[in-house]
Nucleic acid binder design. Structure first.
Lengths: 210, 210
DNA sequence: CTGTGTGAAGGAGTTCACAGCG
DNA sequence: CGCTGTGAACTCCTTCACACAG
């Protein structure tokens, strides 16, 4: 039931889930694909098809039960177990992400941060211990970290990624502009903020169509 | 020559351009689609097709001229003119982005920051003046700002977006999890860091295929 | 009568494979 | 001979439109 979920659908699951939780908090009991469509800006037919990959979740003529659907997606998205991730590079962006409230609502916890700066190493930064780069492999193993947020200057990235692959990391949220060669059991999600801005500028200057 | 560029191609232009500049700095004179493919992790046929939308940029049996191509894309991406953007919300993430070197290589400049915090207003933060929210419309007009980076807590976002639309902003780089209703001459690029992490976790837990 | 679930059609983007230019 | 540029096939995703369940 998992492997057949189309990639495009999987990418929308967190969006659906976030809004469903909002509805749940607001005490709403039922929601139709049309209403949901308005909030998350996804075509209602697409929503119905997305949901249908998981079976018949709705009731015809009624819509979807908010509580049921919220719990269902929570499980799908692994909110029922805590995920511990690590962060490498406690610079501007790294610090901001440590402050970011990943954990608050999503059962994601940054368990360890790593940096080369001796002044930071050994301190606790917004609740997260900062380790030296020498301790990388040990901490990853000890804390069962499978996912790394990579916010280092690009010149150091390649070498670090090699170490991460070696130690068996499963996923990297990559904030550097580089594209890495990784074995195909390691997943890299690239977040390129400069790109996003440039793309925005490009579309604006070239009369996009909504 | 602009409007017919497929969206997917446009999204890759900044990636190509960044690597071309790297090659240029390294003194490389020619590049083939196959070599480029290896570096940016895009299929070589896709690269050739992407380039072909802009006309015949390469030479058969030779490849592409690095200098020519770099300049060509610089123009396409508007690097020949300075783009001034504004940033609203000088919190953790906002501060990190102010420190981020958008400007360094891409002719993008954050010209104004806005925040509700009276301690920040009136100061210069990493070279960027911080204004109060009252000054939003005035500064946007004075500095000809067309693009806003939005890094405010989500409860304030909706109202701010309405003001931005009113004053004629063209694009918003949205770091809040909300999806806004905007007229179709305003472009919103959503960057949702929690989503990225959740998606990564989802794919890892569900045995993705590369 | 309302809103789901889904066959079928329609896009959009990618990749193959090769003709043909330099 | 090498590498581009591109028809054609293919894959993936979205959207339409409606049968049908509650």
């Amino acid at each position: 039931m998992n492997n057949e979920i189309p990639r495009a659908t999987a990418l929308r699951l967190p969006i659906y889930h976030r809004y469903l939780r909002f509805l749940q908090n607001a005490g709403k009991k039922r929601i139709s694909s049309t209403e949901l469509s308005e909030a998350v800006k996804v075509d209602s037919a697409t929503i119905r098809r997305d949901f249908s990959y998981f079976g018949a979740l709705g009731k015809r003529g009624y819509g979807y039960d908010v509580d049921y659907l919220t719990d269902f997606f929570a499980k799908i998205l692994n909110h029922d177990r805590l995920t511990t991730v690590g962060l490498i590079g406690v610079g501007n962006l790294g610090s901001a992400l440590l402050n970011y409230n990943f954990r608050k609502n999503h059962n994601i916890r940054i368990g360890a941060a790593f940096d080369v700066n001796a002044d930071l190493v050994g301190t606790i930064f917004v609740g997260v211990p900062v380790y030296s780069m020498d301790e990388l492999e040990q901490q990853i193993k000890d804390q069962h970290i499978e996912i790394i947020i990579l916010t280092v200057p690009e010149q150091f990235a390649e070498e670090i990624v090699d170490r991460l692959i070696e130690v068996g990391i499963r996923g990297i949220l990559n904030f550097t502009p580089l594209r890495f060669n990784v074995p195909n059991d390691v997943l890299v999600q690239n977040v390129d903020l400069t790109n996003e801005l440039q793309t925005l500028i490009y579309f604006i200057d070239n009369e996009f169509t909504t």
